[in-house]
Amino acid sequence: MKTPLQAMTKTGWITAAVLLLLGVVPPLLMWMGNEFYLLLSTRLVILAVAAVSLNLILGYGGMASFGHAAFIGIGAYAMGIPVYHEFYGGAEAIASTNGWFQIGLAVGASALFALITGAISLRTKGVYFIMITMAFAQMVFYLFQSLDEYGGDDGLVIEMRSELPWINLDDPLQMYFLAFGTLLVTMLLVHLIVNSRFGMVLRVAKGNDERVVTLGYNTYLYRLTAYVIAGVIAGFAGWMMANFSSFISPSMTGWTRSGDLMFMVILGGTATALGPVLGAAAFVLIEEALSSVTVYWNLPFGLMLIGVVLFARGGLLGMLHGRRGDK
């Protein structure tokens, strides 16, 4: 039996170690001439950013959103569409390769989408919430699919990466450090939020909504705020993803992608700082390993997830602790 303080220190230690590894190993491999692992890690870290944001609402807020990938898609299209028009004309108002402009668009569109769909979805609970968030994400999917100008179902190759001062996103190392820096900032931000006064309300309302309402909190507004914050972060992750892969397509928003993000959070350990990062890492690495062996990698992967959910309720982080990691 450990006191919370010892457990906290251990969690902190594991977190620091994992982040250090993530910060050092991929660039080292790149330096040794192995670019593949740097690219794999970039994808991992971008997905981790999205998973950390999902954890804010799923893990800490109890909102099981099955539509989080919609924000990635929105952020990605907010990057790709301006570039498309810069190269092929039309829509002068938004034609741009300027990173700041695209980020503004990605963040603004994600926030708006989160606000509107969150306001509606959060009127429901439980399985209805899961279904309605999924339905909204599918709407985005079909919208993108119907945009023939941007490749419809096939998607669109992006001609040029975002232009930003100080940083050249064509350089894989710089791209990696942008993603990694974003992950650090996001983790710090979520850590601050969940321990703040706002976070206390959000976390307690997760299991005890009636109690928190009785104290005088409008829990709906707290949830909605968290939902918008999470959406904005995922939108930014989408902008990074579009830059990373130089490609956007409707499938980025598909429900299986939302499911993947959910998997990562649950697999790694909900309501923990590091859990979603571990989950994203495990997801990307296992996907890579299994998909090189068999095209049917989804099945063993699904079985493994069920195993984690059944036997290690704190997720991977909980397993590292040898206890339920819900602190």
């Binding site: 601050l192 321990n195 703040s196 006064r197 706002f198 976070g199 206390m200 707290y222 705020t225």
Partner: peptide
């Protein structure tokens, strides 16, 4: 309680 930074 829309205060996000300081630890409660």
């Amino acid at each position: 309680s829309f205060r996000f930074i300081r630890a409660a």
